[in-house]
Design a protein around this nucleic acid. Structure first.
Lengths: 213, 213
DNA sequence: CCGCATCCCATGTGATACTG
DNA sequence: CAGTATCACATGGGATGCGG
């Protein structure tokens, strides 16, 4: 499968041969959130043709990056331990690309998995450790997430649960994360709509999740 | 140029749209070592077709990742400040791919720039800070490098200069970096040939440059 | 020479349809 | 649901050419 190799003996080229093909790292990104079925992956990557998804899944298995969950009735894909070690790569890419995100175009969507990884990218563990444990219920367009911060650890799931602050946010939430837009102002102009709980907690959210732009 | 976009509003997809095309990150890798001319880039990427190199250079300029060095008689490409911020991405990819590097195939070559970035990836700043300043002259196949370690800083150039230890190493040097092969043993079996200076300094080299496998 | 541009062909990609 | 089959098209690869 590595017929498309780069002809160099180098770690970067090796990595790109394994996961550098189109869509490859996006599949990894979604699997970093958790094991997924074929259909879930397809749903999280709306523009991927089914044949490409099938091909990539096979290549990533051959590369030892993912494997099918054994002794499971249905087919579930999961990262191998080696595949999980791609997290720093995906986070670094996400942080870099964050700075080049303009405003969203109409066709651009937000998925739960991509948003989860974005939150992981922006999470400031050391800052969070100094703050009280907090649970947020956030709706980013169609993606509804339960965000639990407890000391230096972050847990993002799709489940429901008790939250201290529930809010719905438009894509401009990006500017809150980057510090360009103050939380109160974001609420004022409707970028963030508080659904439940004290809006002041959005300050804590902004301290916890931050990425320079 | 971003006609091939992923249809998602996400940092990772944005990054991949800007530098994720084939050869893109390898051009960035080489430019992280220093500004380069078209011909130098082509020489460091032996299999890249000239039309692709030209296309990528234009795309990377449009993306704000590289630019032509201004007021220079000849054309020289250089990373922009934003492009330089890709260093963590390239290093993370290199570290990950390092673990999947088997033994080199015949057609695979080693270039000076890729080796330089590999050394930066493996460099352990905190370990080096505790060791005396050392200069190594290393020949990795066709790539001849002057490696200067001074406290926590690393400087790798192609120039010549006084060195404490000069050696030539085959591709198996990888196993020294990974800790699988002890430095003395590497000298014994000819993986490393000491050209000048005390071979015992190779121990220090192995302590300074290390990547788990 | 150096820095590309052009041509041609092989392969990869994408949309749609279809199957176990 | 989890893929395969098919086909049109875009892109990559390799050789060659060409102007400054």
């Amino acid at each position: 499968m590595a017929a498309r190799d780069y002809g160099q003996y180098c770690g970067v080229t090796r990595a790109l041969e394994l996961v550098g093909e189109r869509w490859g790292l996006l599949i990894v990104r979604d699997l970093l959130v958790g094991p997924r079925r074929y259909g879930e992956l397809a749903a999280g990557l709306p523009r991927i043709p089914s044949n490409i998804l099938a091909t990539r899944l096979k290549e990533l298995q051959a590369a030892g990056v993912i494997h099918r969950l054994p002794r499971s009735r249905v087919i579930i894909y999961e990262l191998t331990p080696y595949g999980r070690e791609l997290e720093p790569v995906v986070l670094a890419l996400g942080a870099w690309g964050f700075k080049a995100m303009g405003d969203p175009r109409d066709e651009q969507i937000v998925t739960a998995d991509s948003m989860t990884m974005a939150l992981r990218t922006a999470f400031r563990s050391t800052v969070a450790a100094e703050l009280p444990a907090t649970a947020y219920g956030a709706q980013f367009g169609p993606a509804e997430l339960l965000i639990r911060v407890d000391g230096p650890t972050l847990d993002v799931t799709r489940g429901d649960g008790p939250v201290d602050l529930a809010f719905a946010a438009g894509p401009q939430i990006r500017r809150v994360i980057s510090g360009e837009l103050a939380p109160e102002r974001a609420i004022e102009i409707g970028v963030v709509e508080v659904l439940r709980g004290p809006g002041a907690l959005l300050d804590r959210f902004a301290s916890t999740f931050h990425l320079a732009a």
